[in-house]
């Protein structure tokens, strides 16, 4: 085999901006990490949205942070993973995204999801129980707006400005309704699933099958997001991330026994340990995946730790990952 199958361009960073509280340096650190990711050659830097500090996520306005990042980086693609669509006014979101896309030279990758945090929905005047329906309506509306269709029944009525037709091709959805995602021609953002749910691998297969059945000429897009914590060895990584993981489980009312940490990490879909150990853990999960995105931070990760993990991911994990034939008949 010649060139490594998993070039850095096929990988990315996801930062959920977890932090105990908002500090003046919270956003600076996120911007610095995006620049680090670019310097390592990674293809995309993604940030998550959280309202009112839910899950200790500190960024409610990912497009603003990415607008600033558009001036500190030149090449890396800038993504949201995800924006909670039921809580966004669709037209304002389209305007913000369109302006950012123009501003960044077409580097925006707009990832959307339906959300889960009940209090955020209540605060923004929505019923979390209706989020599936709200999501389905708004994604259709958003696509119409980005496609430049008139915004009212009057065919001469106003349309989106700036026009953002290219962005229509760079929408991503985090959704288990993968057939709908394929029918809309959008990319699939997927992550390890909870026990009892349809597995991520099955979702990817179904998404690609639907895409093929539709006879689409463009390529399907699958991005796999994983917690990836490389270090010297498993024990040292467990010492770093253990307290955060146990705290997270406790906050969700789940058992959190320190000696069971490895089992918890496995169940959460985290890959951790030496680069070689991580390669082993990821190798079986790459079928049908076009891009792999690493979340390298937990609640209390320092910037230095995050940079180190990102570097190990880019320089030691990626080159050693096995090639997957995404042109295999099963997926072609």
């Amino acid at each position: 085999m010649s060139a490594p199958a998993w070039s850095p361009a096929r990988a990315g960073l996801l930062n959920r901006l977890y932090a105990p509280s908002h500090q003046p340096e919270t956003y600076d650190t996120a911007l610095a990490l995006l620049a680090d990711a670019e310097a390592l050659g990674l293809g995309t830097g993604w940030v998550a949205q959280h309202h009112f500090g839910s899950e200790t996520g500190r960024l409610p306005s990912p497009l603003l942070l990415l607008a600033k990042a558009s001036q500190t980086t030149q090449r890396i693609r800038l993504g949201t993973a995800v924006i909670v669509l039921p809580l966004e006014p669709v037209l304002r979101l389209a305007e913000d995204a369109g302006l950012l896309d123009a501003l960044s030279g077409g580097r925006l990758e707009l990832g959307l999801g339906s959300g889960f945090d009940g209090p955020s929905f209540t605060a923004l005047g929505q019923d979390a129980a209706d989020r599936g329906l709200a999501y389905a309506e708004r994604i259709v509306h958003l696509i119409r707006v980005l496609s430049g269709e008139p915004l009212t029944a009057d065919p001469d009525s106003a349309r989106l400005w700036p026009p953002s037709p290219g962005l229509r091709q760079r929408l991503w959805e985090s959704s288990s309704a993968v057939a709908s995602v394929a029918e809309r021609g959008n990319g699939l953002l997927t992550a390890p699933r909870a026990p009892g749910q349809e597995e991520s691998e099955a979702l990817v297969r179904r998404y690609r099958e639907t895409w093929r059945r539709l006879g689409r000429t463009d390529a399907p897009r699958v991005t796999l997001v994983r917690g990836i914590f490389p270090g010297t060895d498993a024990a040292s990584v467990e010492a770093e991330v253990g307290p955060d993981i146990l705290r997270y489980l406790e906050s969700r009312g789940a058992p959190a026994i320190p000696s069971d940490l490895p089992e918890y990490l496995r169940r959460l879909g985290v890959a951790w340990g030496s680069p070689a150990q991580i390669v082993d853990q990821l190798a079986g999960a790459l079928a049908g995946v076009d891009q792999i995105v690493a979340q390298v931070q937990t609640f209390s990760t320092t910037r230095a730790q995050a940079t180190r993990r990102l570097q190990l991911f880019a320089e030691q994990v990626l080159p050693a990952l096995p090639a997957v034939q995404i042109t295999h008949p099963e997926y072609a």
Partner: peptide
């Protein structure tokens, strides 16, 4: 806002974030 206007910034806060 929108195509009927003469001004080109529907999202001043996004642009100001880049200006920042």
């Amino acid at each position: 806002h929108l195509s009927g206007s003469t001004g080109g910034v529907p999202s001043p806060l996004v642009l100001l974030a880049a200006i920042a």
